[in-house]
Design a protein around this nucleic acid. Structure first.
Lengths: 191, 191
DNA sequence: GAACGATGTACAAAATCCGTACACCGTTTT
DNA sequence: AAAACGGTGTACGGATTTTGTACATCGTTC
């Protein structure tokens, strides 16, 4: 497995993304930048969009994977935020090259996984109507992804640590509270 | 060119060398550490010794290559010294795992190239008897390699910048002076 | 002295990478 | 308008690299 070539492509891509917007980057540039053949690029990725997806997915995976409790999930977020900060211009260029819709789709995908994990951990022992459960998750998903979207849109100024810690506390507390209310309504309905 | 696999091997090796002495490191460990097949190691290197040589040679090359004048040569040295400092334990483990003879052979190889370049630049226009010239180069070669040897042996405490700058000045001045004396003796002899 | 783990080697198969060539498209130049 | 240019995506054969498996050897351990 020449895992390393693929990594080199990603690195070259991030490097270029720190210099210019996505649509100014060509396959040839990437390829020249890490000294491989153009076909090798196409062997690993369908096109530049696929490469972008791969990079983002990789980051996402690093956030979500193996982070099952709230604390380690926070760690994951902080890691990701620092990655974003150290590639500020890259994130900026992605943010401005990709449509809002696509970005939100990505972010909500992550947020959903995150909230769902949190909820799973919290309401494991409780009974909550599926509908309420989904509604609540949906709400928090939007809140979370919206926050991240705005954070990037506003130039990633807020401190990741502080922001994420307090967001984490908020989530942990209010998700369980909301779930509880949902449970009570579910009980009421049943009577 | 899977240049990247070879690099990964080197990195894994350096990482391990930061943890334990050379003779405690196995091929399997290296190979496991970067997720490749054991044969892939043997495809790139004959054995661990060859890998060690490769690593050192690579460093040497970075020092000597493209550094033709005294100033840029100093830069090269400082770079190498910083590499050594950031891999302090690795250098320490190499230092203690390899025989003094071998180490000196390496160091003198580098030193010779360095001094010879310096001398070439300085006595290009002068006439110096070959014998004297070689003697002088030999002397400075030993001085230089000995200094480095001791620097490592004493735990690389001295500041690289300062050390190398003053050593550079000393070399530049005294090599040319020595060469001059050599030239005068050569003239004397001729009469 | 048997079991073990590491080494170094051999070889065939699989995976990866490269060179070349081609069709396509949008932009720029003439 | 036609030609030239530069980028994209694809195809394919051949070269290079990586892997799996197996084996003989050697020093250590039990």
């Amino acid at each position: 497995m020449a895992q390393f070539t693929k990594k080199a492509i990603v690195e070259a891509f991030l490097k270029l993304l720190n210099e210019k917007p996505l649509d100014k980057i060509t396959v040839k540039e990437i390829v020249d930048n890490c000294g491989i053949n153009r076909n090798t690029f196409y062997y690993h990725f369908e096109d530049i969009r696929a490469l972008l997806t791969f990079v983002i997915d990789g980051e996402v995976e690093r956030v979500v994977a193996k982070h099952n409790d709230v604390e380690s999930l926070e760690e994951g977020f902080i890691e990701a935020a620092h990655f974003a900060l150290s590639n500020k211009r890259a994130v900026y260029h992605i943010y401005n090259s990709v449509s809002r819709e696509e970005l939100e789709r990505y972010l909500k995908g992550i947020a959903e996984e995150v909230v769902r994990r949190l909820a799973e951990g919290l309401d494991a022992a409780r009974e909550v109507a599926e509908l309420d459960r989904e509604l609540i998750i949906h709400f928090y998903k939007c809140g979370l992804s919206g926050m991240v979207m705005d954070w990037v849109g506003e130039g990633m100024k807020a401190e990741p640590e502080q922001m994420i810690r307090s967001l984490g506390a908020l989530l942990e507390g209010s998700v369980s509270a909301a779930m509880e209310k949902g449970r009570q309504r579910a009980i009421k309905k049943r009577l």
